[in-house]
C-alpha cells in the first residue's frame, strides 16, 4: 500500500509537469488553431538562462523568475516574428512554421552555445527529500506538485476574472465573433503566447531541476509528451489539457511501477496503446473543446 501511495505521489508530480506543458500548447491552439512545436524550445531557452545565471553566481531564487521571464519574452517574440505573418494561413502552414522555428532555434543553440549538454547548478535542497507519513517525497516532487497547483489556480482565476482572460476564452470559442465585439486580435494572441511562455518557463524549471543539464535538443521530448497529453485531453480544451497531462503521467508511472518485468521493455508502446484505447471511446478527448460542438472530428 505504501508503495502504491509512493508511486501515486510520483505520478502526481510527473502528471503535473505534463499538465503544464499540455496547457501551454492548448492555450495557443484554442485561439489560433496552431500546435506550436517550438514550445519545447521555449523550455530550452529558460534552461539556458538558468545555466547562465548559475555561472554568473546568481541565487537560484532569482534565476527562476529570470528564466521564466525569458521564456515569456521569447514566446511573444516568436509570435511577432514567425507566426503573425502566417496567422490566417492554413493549419498546415502554421504547423510547418512552428517546426521551422524549432529547428532554427536548435541550430542557433548548437552554434552559439554548444552542441554538448551544459551542466546547470542547482541548490542542494532540490535533491533532498522529506518524510511525510512514512512516504519519502523528494523536494523537487513537492515543488512540481505545488507549482502545478498554483499555476492552475492562477490560470483559472485569470481566465475567469481578468479582462484579457475573458477575452481569450471568448476568442477560443469563436474568434470571429469575439473580434466583432471589439476584442483586439493582437492583444489576445500575444497574451496567449505570453501565457504559453509562462507555462513553458515553469515546466522548464521543473524539468531542468530533475536532469541538471540543458542541451540544444532538450525541448523535443517534453513537447512530444505535451502533444500526446493535449490530444488525450481534447485538443483546444484547457481543462482537457490538464486532465490529459495528469492521465499521461499516471499511465507512465503506474506502468513503470507495476508492469511485470518481462513487459517493461514494451512499456512505451503499451502506454501509447492505452492512449489510443481512450481515444477510441472518446475521439475528441477526455474533455472536448466547446468549440468543437458535438461534431466528431
Amino acid at each position: 500500500m505504501d508503495l502504491f501511495l509512493q508511486q501515486t505521489v510520483n505520478a502526481f508530480a510527473l502528471g503535473g509537469t505534463y499538465a503544464l506543458l499540455a496547457l501551454g500548447l492548448a492555450v495557443v491552439f484554442s485561439i489560433m488553431g496552431l500546435i506550436n512545436f517550438a514550445h519545447g524550445e521555449l523550455m530550452t531557452i529558460a534552461g539556458y538562462v538558468l545555466m547562465y545565471c548559475g555561472l554568473a553566481g546568481l541565487p537560484f531564487l532569482l534565476s527562476v523568475p529570470l528564466a521564466i521571464s525569458a521564456s515569456m519574452v521569447a514566446a511573444v517574440l516568436m509570435e511577432r516574428i514567425a507566426f503573425r505573418p502566417v496567422r490566417n494561413s492554413s493549419g498546415a502552414t502554421m504547423l510547418v512554421t512552428s517546426f521551422a522555428v524549432a529547428m532554427i532555434l536548435q541550430v542557433l543553440f548548437q552554434n552559439l552555445i554548444s552542441t554538448r549538454s551544459q551542466p546547470v547548478l542547482l541548490p542542494q535542497l532540490l535533491s533532498d527529500s522529506v518524510t511525510i507519513g512514512g512516504l519519502v517525497i523528494g523536494v523537487n516532487k513537492i515543488a512540481a506538485i505545488v507549482s502545478t497547483l498554483v499555476m492552475l489556480v492562477v490560470l483559472d482565476r485569470f481566465m475567469k476574472h481578468q479582462k484579457t482572460g475573458i477575452a481569450m476564452r471568448a476568442a477560443a470559442e469563436d474568434f470571429g465573433v469575439a473580434r466583432l465585439m471589439g476584442i483586439r486580435a493582437n492583444t489576445v494572441i500575444a497574451g496567449a503566447f505570453a501565457l504559453s511562455g509562462l507555462l513553458a518557463g515553469v515546466a522548464a524549471v521543473l524539468w531542468v531541476s530533475q536532469r541538471a543539464s540543458v542541451d540544444p535538443l532538450m525541448g523535443f521530448m517534453p513537447v512530444l509528451k505535451a502533444f500526446i497529453a493535449a490530444i488525450l485531453g481534447g485538443l483546444g480544451s484547457l481543462r482537457g489539457a490538464v486532465a490529459g497531462g495528469f492521465l499521461l503521467g499516471f499511465i507512465e508511472i503506474y506502468l513503470a511501477a507495476f508492469l511485470p518485468h518481462e513487459f517493461q521493455e514494451f512499456r512505451e508502446p503499451i502506454g501509447l496503446g492505452i492512449v489510443v484505447l481512450v481515444l477510441l471511446f472518446r475521439p475528441n478527448g477526455l474533455i472536448p473543446s466547446a468549440a468543437l460542438k458535438a461534431i466528431k472530428v
Partner: peptide
C-alpha cells in the same frame, strides 16, 4: 526518459 521516480521507488522498497 525524464522520470526515474517509479524505478527509484521500487529500488527503495
Amino acid at each position: 526518459q525524464q522520470d526515474f521516480s517509479a524505478i527509484a521507488t521500487r529500488i527503495a522498497a
